[in-house]
Amino acid sequence: MSSKATIYSFLILGLAVTALLIVAPVVYAVSLSFYQMDSFVGAPKWAGLDNYTRMLSQWVFWRALINGFIYSFGTIIFQVVLGIGFALVLNQVFPGRNIVRGLSILPYLLPTVVVVLTFKWMVDGSIGVLTTMMSAVGLPQVQWFESPGAAMASVILVSVWMWTPFVTTTFLAALQTVPSSLYEAAKVDGTNAVQRFFHITLPMLKPILTVIVLLRAVWMFNKFDVIWLLTQGGPVGATEHLAILSYRQAFGQFDIGGGAAVATISFAILSLVVFIYFRLFPLDTE
């Protein structure tokens, strides 16, 4: 086989897999949003843009959109700040460092359902360890899943707890690529530890930071399992974001077209955000 033929055969194979696994479902999902359907077996009825206008005119849609942004920003800020902080600590030399490094990744390895159930037990109104501790120090009992603010706080808290290790590990790996001589040169140049963080560490982490923020943003904006398992979007939609709304619309209200429309809008918003993000923070910093 000539080298050109080899290249084309790999290219065609790759494109075929992409088309089958990514393009086809997306096209199918988008196309669903133009039909009125109450199940996947019935005959779809062409609806044009009705599903979009219907969904966009509903308050639940805008609430879900705002909730999605609150949840994404909240989780990303905490994950990144804590992740960098933990990475800096784990990058220091101390006895048992390797064991601590190993343990720090544990939350990321646990299945979401285990993490969620553990958290539910921790905040259980009668036997929860967190509830008991809070009442022991005289703090009022928090209704974690009943007040809107506390429910959002708890989904953010659990998400941060679960995914900060990923951010920590990534930053830790990046920190180890920063040559120690840069810090030494900066010491000779008269910097203190805080100045070294802002003049050396942070700029050196910037490429990784750019990617991490983007990845976390995409994952968090679409995150379904944690919220569904913890609150199912409640109480009264306080933690419902677009992914949950789309699911509830399609499989709870049997409005498949509406659910698909929400998913399509969510996809478009995310694409726009990613586009703007790359314009603002190009990966190639040269």
Binding site: S181, L182, M204, K206
Partner: peptide
């Protein structure tokens, strides 16, 4: 001090 690998601030 002048370092072996120059230690210039890349950014």
């Amino acid at each position: 001090m002048v370092f072996q690998n120059y230690a210039l601030y890349p950014h």
